[in-house]
Structure formats: structure tokens, C-alpha cells
Design a binder for these strands. Structure first.
Length: 341
DNA sequence: CCAGGTCAAGGGAGT
DNA sequence: ACTCCCTTGACCTGG
């Protein structure tokens, strides 16, 4: 049973197509209407979330990442001071109870703008406020602080000096509340200037071995830093407490998916890519477009296999096609449990 | 009603 | 300097 829960993130396309979707507001709207519009959106979004969880249960999906837009402009207000806080609190605890009763694992992934090591103290202060606000939502949902309800971020900046940036990160990490630190986890990056699994293991040690690492398969493939996927997974799983199942993120390359679609079409129609493709201008132009796709862009769907190397983990799929991608992957059943290699 | 323009946050990479 | 990528496309407006 190597993958315990296979989950997806942020939204459900099927429900969205039937008009059930999260809402947010622009800054100007927030400034104009303040807590009234935020309250309205929060209550709406919690209702949508309930329907997503309900859909997930029906489809045997027991892990879901909450989008931060659940509470629009989180970190810019104290929800406890809102006139209708009672209602928000009630709905939150209802959701939390519902998720716990059904054994659903929830998590957050605050945006890439949360940078604990920024040289700009205003950014650090805003980051701390926003992360604490995420943690407080889990409090409202009735969760004890735990890595079961993780709040996942990246280091966020290197400034050409990873060591210095990490030192700064650690000093700010200890400014966070105890509750937040019992939820906060750190994820590996996809570029060499940023943080590999090994870099983060160093950070884990600097944080008294209390900061778990979320392993992102695809990011690792783009920034391996000299270690194999298996070695990386061995390392990251060791950073989680024994009684908590580690979480990993899984996605694939949009560029390769694009290329595969074109080559499949060509193969089916007997078109030789090297010599004959230019005779089909539309297809050819689409083909040429693949190089424009950024290397780190995510695909719509994923093919797997996801290799757990004998570890028991939860896997969050980060695919544009969301729950549809999950259903398709599950059909393919391409999940490996290798313990050797 | 819908397509297209625009947006709120920090940082890095590619052009 | 500008655009894309990451979290996550949704909001808002003009035709």
C-alpha cells in the first residue's frame, strides 16, 4: 500500500463546469467593500469546498489541497474581528469535522510570494502574517497543529547566496508561532539556483530536524543535484515524524506532453515528422510551438508511473486537468512500488 | 454572453 | 525591459 492517498489540488473541473467554483476579488474591490465582500466570498467558498469534498468522497479521493483563495486576501485582515465571524467559524468547524470524519487529508500551499528569507523586511512581515493566517484557518477547522494538515511553501529566494538566505530563513522561522511550525513544510525547487532536496536537508538540520521536506518529483528531475529519485525520496521521508505519512507532489512536463500529442497524431495518420509535417501547416505550427513552452510548465494530464520506492506516502497530483487527471491516472494504475532501485 | 484585457503577491529564468 | 513560470486563472469590462 505504498501510495496511501492520491489527491489533487485547488479545484474540481467537473463541479466548476456546472458553475460550482471558488470566487475571489480584486484588490480594488477588497479596498472598496472590505470585510463585507470578503465575508461573502469566504462563506461562498466554504460551501464550494464542502461540495468538492463530497465529490471527492464519492470518488474515493482522500487528499485535497485548499487554494489560498478560500479566504481572499488572507493576511490582510483579522477574520476574528469580522461582524459575521460566528458564521465563518461555524462553517470552518463543520468542514473540518466533515473532513476528519471521512479521513480526508487537507493542506495549504500559500503562494510563491511568501518569502521568509527576503532582504525586504516588509516582505518578511507580510509573509509571517499570511502564513499565520493559513494556520489559523486550520485552527478554526478544529485541527490540532500537525503535519497531517501541512502548510507547504518554498524557500522563495536565493539572491546568489543560498547559505546566507537559509540562515535568514531559519532566524525568521523561529519568529513563527509554535502551531504554525508544527504545520509548515518546505518543498524542493526546479532550478539550480534554488533549493534541491539536499539543500533542504541542510535547512531541516538547521531547524532542529523539525522541518519536514515535501518531495516534488518533477522539480527533482529538473534539479537533481547529483542524487537519484530514490535517494531523494529516502532522504525526504526521513524528515517527517514517524507517525505522519509524508506528502509528495507529482507533475509532468507540459512541453513533453505537447510533443507526445503531436507525434501521436502524426503516427496515426502516417505523417513523417521529419519530412512531411510541413505539408500540414496547422499541425506544423502547433508542433513548432513546443519550444515556446517553458520547461517547468505542468502538463494537463500525467502518465506516471509514480515510484514510491517502498515508502508509504500521500501523493498530490499537480496537473492542469485536476481531478480528471487523477481519475485517468488511477485507471492506468501505473504506480510502482520498487524497493530495489 | 463572451472574448479579451487585466490583475495581487516575490523572485528567477529565458528572450 | 518584458514575459512566463511557480501558488491558481478569475475578475471585470467593453462590444
Amino acid at each position: 500500500m505504498p501510495i496511501r492517498h492520491l489527491g489533487y489540488v485547488a479545484k474540481n473541473l467537473e463541479l466548476e463546469n456546472s458553475g460550482i467554483k471558488m470566487q475571489t476579488v480584486r484588490r480594488a474591490t477588497f479596498d472598496l467593500y472590505g470585510e463585507d465582500i470578503i465575508t461573502e466570498k469566504i462563506l461562498h467558498n466554504l460551501n464550494v469546498l464542502y461540495q468538492i469534498l463530497e465529490w471527492n468522497i464519492k470518488n474515493d479521493i482522500y487528499a485535497f489541497r485548499l487554494g489560498s483563495e478560500l479566504f481572499p486576501w488572507l493576511g490582510n485582515y483579522n477574520v476574528k474581528s469580522f461582524k459575521r465571524f460566528d458564521e465563518i467559524e461555524y462553517e470552518c468547524s463543520f468542514i473540518g469535522e466533515y473532513a476528519r470524519e471521512n479521513n480526508i487529508r487537507l493542506s495549504f500551499h500559500p503562494g510563491p510570494f511568501n518569502v521568509l528569507c527576503s532582504p525586504d523586511n516588509t516582505v518578511v512581515e507580510k509573509t509571517i502574517r499570511e502564513l499565520e493566517a493559513h494556520s489559523e484557518i486550520f485552527d478554526l477547522m478544529g485541527y490540532e497543529p500537525s503535519f497531517n494538515t501541512k502548510i507547504n511553501i518554498h524557500v522563495g529566494g536565493a539572491y546568489g547566496d543560498k547559505v546566507g538566505a537559509l540562515e535568514k530563513w531559519v532566524s525568521n522561522y523561529y519568529k513563527l508561532s509554535e502551531s504554525l511550525r508544527q504545520r509548515l513544510v518546505i518543498e524542493n525547487d526546479d532550478t539550480t539556483s534554488m533549493y534541491s532536496v539536499q539543500d533542504l536537508y541542510g535547512l531541516h538540520e538547521l531547524c532542529n530536524n523539525e522541518l519536514p521536506i515535501t518531495f516534488d518529483y518533477y522539480h527533482h528531475s529538473l534539479h537533481q543535484d547529483g542524487i537519484s529519485e530514490k535517494e531523494a525520496l529516502d532522504i525526504v521521508t526521513s524528515t517527517w515524524p514517524k507517525d505522519i505519512v509524508p506528502v509528495t507532489h507529482y507533475s509532468e512536463s507540459r512541453r513533453e506532453e505537447h510533443l507526445k500529442i503531436i507525434t501521436d497524431i502524426c503516427r496515426k495518420n502516417g505523417i513523417d515528422i521529419e519530412t512531411e509535417l510541413p505539408e500540414w501547416p496547422t499541425l506544423y505550427n502547433t508542433y513548432l510551438g513546443w519550444e515556446m513552452i517553458k520547461e517547468n510548465a505542468h502538463s494537463d494530464n500525467v502518465n506516471g508511473p509514480i515510484n514510491t520506492y517502498g515508502h508509504t506516502i500521500d501523493v498530490m497530483l499537480e496537473a492542469k486537468a485536476k481531478e480528471q487527471a487523477l481519475l485517468k491516472l488511477r485507471e492506468k494504475q501505473l504506480i510502482l512500488e520498487n524497493t530495489n532501485n
